[in-house]
Design a protein around this nucleic acid. Structure first.
Length: 979
RNA sequence: GCCCAUGUGGCGGAAUUGGUAGACGCAGCAGACUCAAAAUCUGCCAUUCGCAAGGGUGUGAAGGUUCGAUUCCUUUCGUGGGCACCA
């Protein structure tokens, strides 16, 4: 009776489905536990072995928690809106809904083979109207909210209107327009449109103008992804910045709450660090500089007001509105040229560029209010309009980028930090005593900061200011395949749809190309966009009425999906409060670090808003986050020889034969090995002669081209030449090879991202077919820690498969049949069992699945050595194994005579009494190096140990008659003799 | 460029709190079983010197703290991820 994994796995998958083994109910009898995987986008390429890594980890943890007596919610669904499907639609004309559905079916099929315990009845798709109805509904709630900085939470707009009507906005500075200040009476006298415009500056989702990547040739807005080196990825057309009306999430209002919340959740320090840096809270000062010959003031933000006397120039963002006004006639041309250059640059490029310093002098001068010095005002791409005030005061002796700039443009540098500045590079210290610094002279820099700010405030030329690097999040896309905004525009005022009008369904389009003026494809559907006034439930007046034609970004649907799983079929609300109160936070969230600052910040923000508005009872969505590493591809390379040929008339390039040389020969050529070169040349000549016959062909040289070859027909490093010849419809059928001496072709290796184009993807289906899901699951875990990135190599999978077969052989023998019995277990057997229970439980708890798999192997090896076939022991091993290899565990559990599912068994309880030891083999070190081992009773104290150790032959030899300086004895660890 | 992670045998990795570096597995080598192969089992397997006993070296590199460092600190190099419209 052998381990027939194909039959076992298929049978159990069917039975689990029929018995609804994974169905989860929202009942409170058991303690709840919520395990969540990051929302996948169903890509057309299908799964490769890297994708299920996190899913297997969460599946193991879910099953483990269930065995431990929890009611476990472990759902899966699809983040099914997104750019790739739309891109595919543009290319093939197929509707994204159709291709997405197809991709989902593939995805589901692949997941099912691996035997996950998802409750598929709770599956959701963000592109389903029944789902995005609620995404739109939440959008409307956010639209109807503002952030009250006094109560520190989101509140309804109606409340804000009341405040304006009674006290104006004196208590509530406008986040969108800082100069907007009015009293109650002024507010009451405003017309409706102006009122709405002001309210827009408070709303937590709002519409305003922002810059996008505009590609004139394609007539469309491009994602950063689609812009490569300043031109469009498709077609290579120029891309420039363009201002367009956009929707935003006012996430900056939540900056402090997002920072504070980090204290209460279990994310890795690295993850928290990334979010903190993204939010980028800094303390500093804003101050105004007068500009020579102008009335306007130049406002800068600085975190180092102590360096005010070291300011040698100002740098203003090229987009800054003052630039046009202050540029002198003499500099105008140069500035215009520079502005054109900057327009073509992406933000990333602007910030990353350090080698090539660019900038341009405006001709204007700011006045230092403390010493009256005239400071030249420059513009440079490294200052962005969106950060701070869009202008900085440059202190070359203290800031490296300012220093480089000053050097490059020959701007004289003032040293205010004495010997701390060496003239060769800037020094950002806060420890220097200030010099050349007027009233700050003699002060330590870190003390001078507040002295300087106080003075600035006293002179009323600036204020203390907390600044955030984070910006409001762009929330609209000029695309088709996303949630339509439930908003109508009338006379420039955005009017939200009524909740009863939701969902606003995505209309069908025939073409996916952009609309007019860079609008999204929806703008092309005139009868959808243009509405008849007064036709809807709300009074809409008589003006021009149009729908918003942008759609929401990918992160809209994924910012709240974890709530929908709790109550997926609810038609009355996005999630019943009872359900969200029961399930609460996601207890464990597993996913990649690539979401560190996008999804993980947006979903935290949405949760906080829903909490503030009273729809849910918790304000952090994820209690604990585990980051899974990436599985990288291990690419294989072939070395192709291209002969350089002098051709004659009528030479047919198409006949050129493929010639490949094995790795060691390529290596030799690389080292300019003469013999290898000549041999290769001769080989190439002969190969050409075979093809071209009589043609006289002279080869003048060869070049080597490294090309990817599909890893699926390379065994280790050795190419399967027959398979290779069949690749790509026989393109290489006549390829010629120079092999190694033993006749094999050896490929080169490199680790890189797993992707189709690199031919290094490995499909899990093939492995599951060949070895079974249980083997596949355990092997993925065995590869290494979940958190770590590692290259995939299929080779080792045999070892895990052998382990499962060995486990099977503890129960059944191919020849003898049933081996398991009901005999009483010995102490030695129980010791193996309990040691395994302890280690596997600990390892599973701390997500150290790779070491748990090792422990299973050790356990089975030891039980096999002990010839233990006892049900008493094996039954417990099966329960331990269930989370990792559910099919084989269930099958053997069943064969042991159990009628219930092993998932409803009780997890074995560790009992320390089987592990008690009275002595230990201690390593004895001399000066930290182990020289001997002595078996010592654990009860011994320092003095007794010293005596025994000093009597030891090896120790005496090393002492060589000397007295030891010290003997360190750490109970249950080691002994170190210091000489 | 900035932020984060990471670096240990031929390979994936282990060493959980500063305490025997290399568990477990792959690959490799030798052997048993077999007509043979597969499967299975046994042994060896960081490197170097040595017949051996035993010794030297060794966790990317260079320093440091410590009786003792893969683990802590400083500097530095390589690789991977993110950087606001991929999801």
């Amino acid at each position: 009776m052998e381990y027939d994994f194909r039959k076992i796995e298929q049978e159990w998958q069917v039975r689990w489905k029929l018995n609804k083994t994974y169905k989860v109910f929202n009942d409170a009898a058991k303690p709840k536990y919520y395990v969540l995987d990051m929302f996948p986008y169903p890509s057309g390429a299908g799964l490769h072995v890297g994708h299920p890594l996190g899913y297997i980890a969460s599946d193991i943890y879910s099953r483990y928690k269930r065995l431990k007596g929890f009611n476990v919610l472990h759902p899966m669904g699809y983040d099914s809106f997104g750019l790739p499907a739309e891109q595919y639609a543009l290319e093939t004309g197929q509707h994204p809904a159709v291709t997405t559905e197809k991709n989902i079916a593939t995805f589901r099929g692949q997941l099912d083979k691996i035997g996950f315990c998802y409750d598929w009845d709770r599956a959701i798709k963000t592109s389903d109207a029944s789902y995005y109805k609620w995404t739109q509904w939440i959008f409307l709630q956010i639209f109807d909210s503002w952030f009250n900085r006094i109560t520190n939470r989101a509140e309804r707009i109606a409340g804000l209107v009341k405040i304006f009507e009674t006290e104006g906005n004196l208590q509530h500075a406008c986040p969108g327009d800082k100069v907007q200040i009015f009293a109650a009476q002024e507010w009451n006298n405003l017309d409706e449109k102006t009122k709405q415009e002001i309210l827009m500056d408070y709303r937590l989702t709002f519409s305003a103008y922002g810059e996008v990547n505009w590609c004139e040739a394609l007539g469309t807005v491009l994602a950063n992804d689609e812009v490569v080196n300043g031109v469009s990825e498709r077609g290579g057309h120029p891309v420039e910045k363009k201002k367009m009306r956009q929707w935003y999430l006012r996430i900056t209002e939540y900056a402090d709450r997002l920072l504070e919340g980090l204290e209460r959740i279990e994310f890795s320090d690295a993850m928290k660090e990334m979010q903190k840096n993204w939010i980028g809270k800094s303390q500093g000062a804003e101050m105004d500089f007068a500009i020579r010959d102008h009335d306007q003031l130049l406002r800068v933000y600085t975190t180092r007001p102590d360096t005010i006397f070291g300011v040698d120039f100002m740098v203003v963002a090229p987009e800054h509105e003052l630039v046009k006004q202050i540029t002198t006639a003499a500099q105008k041309r140069e500035i215009d040229n520079y502005l054109t250059y900057v327009k073509s640059r992406s933000e990333r490029e602007r910030l990353a560029e350090v080698k090539q310093i660019t900038g341009c002098f405006t001709g204007a001068y700011a006045i230092n209010p403390f010493d009256g010095r005239e400071i030249p005002i420059w513009i440079a791409e490294y200052v962005l309009a969106g950060y701070g005030t869009g202008a900085i005061m440059a202190v070359p002796c203290g800031d490296q980028r300012d220093f480089g700039f000053a050097r490059h443009f020959n701007i004289p540098i003032t040293n205010i930090i004495g010997s701390y500045f060496n003239g060769e590079e800037a020094n950002a210290t806060k420890e220097a005593i200030l010099q050349n610094s007027g009233f700050l002279n003699g002060l330590l820099m870190k003390d001078a900061i507040s002295v300087a700010v106080n003075k600035i405030e006293e002179l009323r030329i600036g204020t203390r200011k907390v600044n955030f690097r984070m910006r409001d999040a762009g929330f609209s896309r000029q695309r088709y395949w996303g949630e339509p905004f439930p908003v109508i525009w009338q006379d420039g005022v955005a009017i939200p749809l009524d909740a009863v009008e939701l969902p606003l369904e995505l209309p069908h389009v025939d073409k996916y190309g952009p609309g007019p003026n860079g609008e999204g494809p929806l703008a092309n559907i005139e009868d959808w966009v243009n509405l008849i006034p007064n036709a809807s439930p709300k009074e809409r007046g008589t003006g021009e009425v149009k729908r918003e034609t942008s759609t929401m970004p990918g992160y809209a649907g994924s910012s709240w999906y974890f709530l929908r799983y709790m109550d997926p079929e609810n038609t009355q609300s996005f999630c019943d409060r009872k359900a969200s109160d029961y399930w609460g936070q996601v207890d464990i969230y597993i996913g990649g670090t690539e979401h560190a600052v996008g999804h993980l910040l947006y979903s935290r923000m949405w949760t906080k808003i829903l909490f503030d508005l009273g729809y849910i009872g918790h304000d952090e969505p994820f209690k604990k986050l585990v980051n899974q590493g990436m599985i990288q591809g291990s690419s294989r390379y072939m070395y192709r020889v291209s002969p350089v040929i002098i051709t004659a008339d009528g030479f047919d390039q198409a006949l050129l034969p493929y010639i490949f040389i094995s790795k060691s020969i390529a290596d030799k050529l690389e080292l300019e090995d003469k013999l290898a070169y000549e041999n290769t040349m001769k080989f190439a000549e002969r190969s050409l002669a075979d093809v071209y016959g009589d043609w006289v062909i002279t080869i003048t040289g060869i070049s080597i081209l490294k090309t990817h070859v599909d890893v699926n027909f390379v065994d280790g490093l050795e190419l399967d030449i027959d398979q290779f010849k069949k690749w790509r419809n026989g393109e290489y059928a006549n390829a010629k090879f120079i092999n190694e001496d033993d006749g094999t072709y050896i490929c080169g290796v490199e680790t890189e991202k797993m992707s189709k184009s690199k031919y290094n993807t490995v499909n899990p289906d093939i492995l599951v077919d060949k070895y079974g899901a249980d083997t596949f699951r355990m092997y993925e875990m065995f590869l290494g820690p979940v958190e770590q990135s590692k290259p995939w190599d299929t080779k080792g999978i045999e070892g895990v498969h052998r382990f499962l077969r060995k486990l099977w052989r503890l129960f059944y023998d191919e020849g003898k049949g049933k081996l398991w019995n009901e005999n009483k277990a010995t102490d030695a057997e129980l010791k193996v069992l309990h040691r395994s229970i302890k280690k596997i439980e600990e390892d599973t708890e701390r997500f150290s699945f790779n070491t748990a798999v090792s422990t299973f192997m050790i356990c089975v090896n030891e039980l096999a050595d002990l010839k233990c076939n006892k049900k008493e022991v094996l039954e417990n091993v099966l329960i331990l194994l269930t989370p990792y290899a559910p099919h084989i565990a269930e099958e053997l559990w069943n064969r042991l005579g159990n009628s219930n599912s092993i998932l409803d068994a009780a997890y074995p309880v560790f009992d320390g009494k089987y592990l008690v030891e009275s002595s230990k083999e201690y390593p004895i070190s001399i000066n930290g190096k182990v020289r001997a081992n002595i078996n010592l009773a654990l009860s011994l104290e320092q003095a007794e140990v010293e005596k025994i150790v000093l009597e030891n032959e090896v120790v005496q030899k090393w002492l060589d008659g000397r007295e030891p300086k010290k003997i360190i004895y750490v109970k249950n660890k080691m002994v170190n003799v210091v000489i």
